[in-house]
């Protein structure tokens, strides 16, 4: 096993302010950034605040910005950096800091509540649902989302525009609208709920100008823009003119 000392620069502080602090810390073969943060806790900074859970890329808790890029700490291997490099870890920029690497992500939970839930079809008892695999594939892709909120963090509609937060649900929750809209048995329409229209009017779909930043940072590799947001815009187009849909259909290369 090989071991070396890495240089880390980690943001420490709280809502009142803080600063980057330098650390030198041991690294072993095969480790990820979260291992190093844990070693710091155990040896140099017992009260260093970090959120984490599964350490296997499945729960989406340990989101942070590593050298400025939104990533999961548990899925960022140390071998992707040179040994000379100083690695900077900062909290998610789009959300208010609670302490150190922990941010207040309640924005996302508030947005989740604004999306009307799945509407079960009338007249089908539990156990009577029939759906073809090909018809559930697309919504299943969106349900792979681990709610790490990296897409919400990187989306420039809100990243540096606090004022847009009230009107914009963000990629994760627009994708949730798309997921329900594409669910083969969702009966929203029968109940008078037009999900396409609400995407536009209630969740701020029009703010999205399909720069695909969300897709780039998604640790699950979900094609958020191509498979969720653009189709949602196209479906919404009957209801409302959106010049970006026209643009999107010209510039995106997507499989149907």
């Amino acid at each position: 096993m090989t071991t070396y000392d890495a240089r880390f620069r980690i943001w420490r502080g709280d809502a009142d302010g803080g600063e980057l602090r330098d650390f030198t810390v041991e690294v072993h073969d095969g480790e990820v950034v979260l291992d190093i943060v844990h070693r710091l806790q155990a040896t140099q900074a017992a009260d260093l605040a970090v959120r984490w859970n599964c350490k296997a890329g499945k729960c989406g808790s340990c989101s942070a910005e590593i050298n400025g890029r939104p990533r999961l700490m548990c899925m960022t291997r140390m071998s992707t950096f040179s040994r000379e490099e100083t690695i900077t870890v900062t909290p998610l920029r789009a959300f208010p800091v609670v302490r150190d690497l922990v941010t207040d992500v309640s924005f996302n939970y508030a947005k989740a509540r604004e999306v009307p839930a799945f509407v079960p079809p009338q007249g089908l008892a539990p156990g009577e649902y029939r759906m073809q695999q090909v018809d559930v594939d697309r919504s299943q892709e969106f349900r792979k989302c681990i709610e790490c909120f990296l897409c919400q963090d990187t989306c420039h509609v809100v990243r540096d525009h606090e004022e847009n937060k009230a009107a914009f649900a963000g990629p994760r929750f627009l994708m949730r609208v798309a997921e329900l809209d594409m669910h083969p048995l969702d009966a929203a329409e029968a109940e008078g709920l037009d999900r396409k229209r609400t995407a536009q009017e209630d969740h701020g779909l029009g703010y999205c100008n399909i720069t695909k930043c969300c897709t780039e940072v998604c640790p699950e590799g979900i094609k958020i823009t191509d498979n969720a947001l653009i189709p949602l815009k196209e479906r919404a187009v009957d209801r409302k003119y959106d010049p970006l849909v026209w643009l999107g259909s010209k510039i995106s290369r997507r499989r149907d």
Binding site: A117, F118, P120, G127, Y129, R130, Q132, R143, H183
Partner: peptide, 18 residues
Amino acid sequence: VWELETWGALFDRTPDGR
């Protein structure tokens, strides 16, 4: 399990849709 479907769960399907 069936109850979860009525809450929106999407399980993998058999060829006949179950």
